[in-house]
């Protein structure tokens, strides 16, 4: 399975990517929403996007809305991974079309649990 890790922090992209790779994902990275849209438009077809909220150029919520507006990307699973954790923000992200929401700080176990809920753990697919 493939994942696109979207976060403006390189350190955080590395942490999320390392966790996903540990679960068997191939990953690519983008530093903001617009860069991620460009990667998708180039034809990269991930199964999963992990999305930070606050980023320069295009934030995570705008990215989610843009992906949801394009039927070609309907199969893409969108998971917010952000320190934004007001209840109203989580509701907004889900309403915009995010499937799941992981609050920073998180552990690799937390990511794994959420992916398991979504049926998106590659190991399980192998079993």
């Amino acid at each position: 399975m493939r994942a696109l890790v979207i976060d403006d922090s390189r350190a955080m992209r590395r942490i999320v990517s390392a966790a996903l790779e540990g679960f068997g994902y191939e990953t690519r990275q983008a530093g903001h929403g617009q860069e991620a849209l460009d990667v998708l438009q180039e034809g990269y077809a991930p199964d999963l996007c992990t999305i930070d909220w606050n980023m320069p150029v295009m934030d995570g919520l705008q990215f989610v809305s843009a992906v949801r507006a394009n039927p070609a990307w309907r199969a893409l699973t969108l998971m917010m991974v952000t320190s934004e954790s007001e209840q109203g923000q989580i509701v907004r992200a889900l309403a915009a079309g995010a499937h799941e929401y992981v609050i920073k700080p998180f552990t690799a176990d937390a990511l794994r649990d959420k992916l398991a809920l979504l049926g998106m753990l590659p190991e399980e697919a192998v079993l």
Partner: peptide, 17 residues
């Protein structure tokens, strides 16, 4: 700046909430 800033972002997001 990137790593230390991200730690501030995580602490700050949770303080805000």
């Amino acid at each position: 700046a990137d790593a230390f800033g991200e730690i501030a972002n995580v602490v700050g997001g949770n303080v805000k909430a």
